[in-house]
């Protein structure tokens, strides 16, 4: 044994410092600083060159350094209808998709929570499984389903429900389907966690007291599942707002969601400062739903413990 414990203490402190410092430093450099940069560049003017924006603090004509800050990008953002339209369209598409997702996901979560125990694990695994396969390819799968010669149209034609193929691909409708499809597990998992926990005992008590199944559902199950509903909805709503791949592949020209507008602004117009301003406003829009989600998440965890 070593005589001095000082070496030990230093060693222990060093280990502790490393555990904290390594991820901390990584995230400061590759997460926090990049966001500061986005904000910084959103205050610059676009120029031709590399990088294509003006420095915020620069020497003008060799004399003295001076600040160069402009709010033109933000002014332009709110003056031009394209961006306002894109933001509103994103909110609308995200909202409708979230409601649809809830309509599909709630009965499923409820059904899984009420299934016999071995079945619950299997059904849950089946919900999660598609989430592990490629997101891009799952969106792509719907291109084959919804196209003019796709499965849905073929079935509709054969059933005699329509006379000619319905335009579904490259419309808002296809985007709703795509979002519901890819984000369904995010809706079901928190709902299931909530329903599985509260359901059994209360349900039985209410039934023993003579309540009808529908009354039990409306008076007991549904009100108690509201935190799960909000958590699930936020988990769909938040990523849906900034979605790019789904509107790019399934949407039509009118499906101008903000993620797509930002992508085009950056890659085709090459206006970095304006793109940065679009991104900054997008993050601000997301703050409120994220706070709502956090609030209910904390409440949920407190109720469990």
């Amino acid at each position: 044994m070593r005589p001095a414990s000082a070496g030990r203490a230093t060693h222990d402190r060093l280990w502790r410092a490393w555990v904290i410092a390594a991820p901390f430093a990584w995230l400061i450099v590759l997460f926090l600083i990049p966001f500061v940069l986005v904000f910084k560049i959103s205050l610059a003017d676009p120029i031709l060159g590399q990088p294509p924006f003006t420095p915020l603090f620069g020497a003008v004509e060799g004399a003295q350094g001076s600040w160069h800050v402009t709010f033109d990008n933000y002014r332009f953002l709110f003056a031009d209808n394209l961006y306002l339209y894109s933001y509103l369209k994103s909110l609308k598409v995200a909202f409708i998709s979230t409601v649809l997702c809830l309509a599909v996901g709630y009965p499923m979560a409820y059904g899984i929570a009420r299934a016999a125990r071995p079945w619950r694990h299997i059904l849950l695994l089946l919900v999660i499984l598609p989430f592990w396969t490629s997101f891009l390819l799952r969106v792509y799968a719907w291109m084959g389903m919804l196209g003019k010669q796709g499965l849905v149209n073929t079935l509709l034609l054969q059933a005699g429900l329509v006379d000619e193929p319905v335009s579904m691909l490259y419309t808002d409708f296809a985007v709703y389907i795509g979002i519901v499809y890819t984000y369904l597990p995010f809706m079901i998992l928190p709902l299931y966690a909530n329903l599985e926990r509260r359901h059994r005992d209360l349900h039985e008590v209410a039934a023993d007291l003579g309540a009808r199944p529908l009354a039990v559902f409306l008076d007991v199950t549904l009100p108690l599942s509201i935190p799960g509903i909000i958590a699930g909805c936020m988990l769909v709503f938040i990523p849906a707002i900034g979605e790019f791949v789904i509107p790019a592949l399934l949407g039509g020209p009118e499906t101008l969601m903000i993620g797509r507008t930002l992508y085009d602004e950056f890659f085709f117009n090459r206006d970095w400062p304006l793109s940065s301003a679009v991104a900054t406003v997008l993050v601000f829009i997301l703050v409120l739903p994220i706070m709502v989600f956090q609030h209910y998440q904390v409440k949920e965890t407190r109720m469990v413990s």
Partner: peptide
């Protein structure tokens, strides 16, 4: 701060993360 930075990428739109990293 560490807790916030570790949770934030989960809710950040990919398009914003991508742009910010490129600028970095």
């Amino acid at each position: 701060l560490l807790g916030g930075m570790i949770a934030a990428p989960l809710v950040m739109p990919e398009i914003v993360t991508g742009l910010s990293l490129l600028l970095l």
